[in-house]
């Protein structure tokens, strides 16, 4: 892991977050957030519900304007971009090309009333693909990549199991080869065995495609499996951050210690 960390330091960060804050009410939201995310890095944001981690994810992924601070993103198309100072048009282009967003509830990230093929094909069509045969071929390939039988291409997501819906959501995001993925509790609400399969697949895809990921989870087991680095949040503040193993095996902050021990007790 340390060799990889060293390697990250040599390139420019993909995302630079500076003094970011967003509060709905005192104690509700997140504040004083500072970090860098490097290409190929998986950052886990952990904490209990209400700790502000989902608010933070929304602010990072350009879906919720912060009260203060900056998010600077190194875009393939636009170069260095200050997300909340740039044109909304650019943010929206990022959303459908360089970024992916995987929601906790698949129905928030999928079009439930159109087929799996159309769900995957939408981003291709959004970036100008107009050949039905090609769209279908790519959709089929991606279904297979996420281990869904390609004969289900014309089925609607509502006919899929929870785990399949989540995998479809991932395929829908990855079809345009994004470089940064935001995930909000991607395994929440799934059975343990289904979770394991999904995590395994995610880990494979992340490594294979060299994706950078920011993943929000309250499940430390998920964080340990996927994340290189962790940020622990409590009441809107980051109380501890570091390499995943370090944070989980040798927690410094009392709150992290409590989190880790409660996992052990379960």
């Amino acid at each position: 892991m340390s060799a990889q960390t060293a390697q990250w330091q040599d390139v420019a960060p993909l995302l630079q977050v500076r003094e970011l804050s967003k509060f709905y009410a005192p104690g509700k939201g997140c504040g004083d957030i500072d970090f860098d995310l490097y290409p190929g890095e998986v950052l886990g944001i952990v904490g209990e519900s209400g700790s502000g981690k989902s608010t933070l994810l929304n602010v990072l992924s350009a879906r919720l304007a912060p009260d203060a601070g900056q998010v600077i993103y190194q875009s393939e198309q636009f170069g260095e971009l200050d997300l909340y100072a740039c044109d909304e048009a650019q943010r929206r282009v990022l959303m459908r090309s360089e970024w992916g967003i995987v929601h906790q509830h698949a129905r928030d990230g999928l079009r439930m009333n159109v087929s799996a093929g159309a769900n995957i094909g939408e981003r291709l069509m959004a970036v100008g693909e107009r050949h039905y045969g090609n769209i279908r071929e790519r959709a089929q390939a991606w279904l297979e990549a996420v281990e869904i039988d390609s004969s289900r291409i014309d089925d609607r997501p509502s006919q899929f199991s929870g785990g399949m819906q989540q995998r479809l959501q991932i395929a829908r995001n990855l079809v345009t080869h994004p470089q940064l993925i935001f995930m909000d509790e991607p395994t929440g609400g799934l059975d343990v065995s289904v979770q394991a399969k999904l995590l395994d697949m995610l880990r494979g895809l992340v490594a294979e495609l060299g994706l950078s990921v920011i993943i929000v989870t309250h499940d430390l087991a998920v964080a340990r499996l996927l994340a290189h680095r962790l940020m622990v949040m409590r009441r809107g503040q980051v109380v501890e951050s570091g390499l995943t193993d370090q944070v989980l095996d040798d927690p410094q902050h009392p709150y992290t210690q409590l989190l880790v021990s409660s996992i052990l007790q379960n």
Binding site: F23, Y24, A25, P26, G29, D67
Partner: peptide, 9 residues
């Protein structure tokens, strides 16, 4: 009408 408001930041 008078409505409650929980306050903001």
């Amino acid at each position: 009408m008078v409505n409650q408001f929980h306050g903001s930041a």
